[in-house]
Design a protein around this nucleic acid. Sequence first.
DNA 1: ACAAAATATTTTAAATGTAAAATATTATAT
DNA 2: ATATAATATTTTACATTTAAAATATTTTGT
Lengths: 175, 175
Amino acid sequence: MSVQLDSESRVKDDDHVALKLWLRLLTCTNLVESQLRGQLRESFDSTLPRFDLLAQLDRHPEKLTMGELSSLMMVSGGNVTGLVRQLEKEGLVSRTPAKTDRRTFLVGLTRKGKKYFDRMAESHENWVIELFAGLDHDAQEALMNALSRLKSSVMGAGAWNGVPRSGTGVSRPGG
Amino acid sequence: MSVQLDSESRVKDDDHVALKLWLRLLTCTNLVESQLRGQLRESFDSTLPRFDLLAQLDRHPEKLTMGELSSLMMVSGGNVTGLVRQLEKEGLVSRTPAKTDRRTFLVGLTRKGKKYFDRMAESHENWVIELFAGLDHDAQEALMNALSRLKSSVMGAGAWNGVPRSGTGVSRPGG
DNA sequence: ACAAAATATTTTAAATGTAAAATATTATAT
DNA sequence: ATATAATATTTTACATTTAAAATATTTTGT
């Protein structure tokens, strides 16, 4: 049937380079995400958002507020509310009111959550290494540099509204 | 509070280069996607998946089956079923049974859908160009090359299960 | 021809996601 | 002090997404 296999196929010959670039970026991300999601499900019966939330807490042992989690994960506040509730019910994270501000909650890994995360994180890193193994170290450096520039470009472009975080004014220099 | 603004912040200093690379890739994609989603909503009261589906049909004027759409968009079949149903109800796409195979449906843009898409596509391309404007042409070429290599790497790595397309055996050389 | 396997799609159930409104609390400006 | 604005989170309503099961049809093997 000779049909391409991914989103890039929608690029027309006369399309702008930037558009091709964006679609290839999206394709790569989708491919990696699919692999990781599948592995996480098969090996640990878990999901990417759960893993990502635990990873943020592991990276920030000083505990994080709901809003910080929302910013870091680049998802809406309501989304975080649901995920934290779920993980708290399973005893993987703790959620305690802040002393100084009664609006705020501090979220952190429990011992059980830390163990659970560490187990997954090791496998996760190996999966990523394997997926990127086709690029030698220089190629990885080159890609990292290119992506750094892209990140700056995107964050600099237009009026920056940020990632949807309804009801949160965090990180809106233009707002 | 001095907390970073995106997923990369979960990288620890001793983490493997590939992991940093993956998180930066994810961050860039999330940033671009958020911008485009917001613009699409504000300017056209539409969404990315709707746009993507129409774009695939525009790219393939010979019409596509549900399964081909699923592969091209890298989303599950059930997802395509819902999107096509919605767009068909709005008169933007047509969905006709194939002559030779009664399991199969052929989906294509209606005249109304083509107009609707063209209007969005122009803005969409301009948004992308603007988001990538911080990279000069050489940098864009470099990034494209790096991503090409990454795509090959990911598609070559491990047993390729492909993107989740439940109930679809498409493109599984290993299955 | 006929059973079994493969394929294409839809349906289902549950998870994830957004955006906007609602609630509660804290900060600011008279 | 008190009204107003800003902030942090939750709730609500709904859209999207996946994975698996179900359905329908075609293909394959014998």
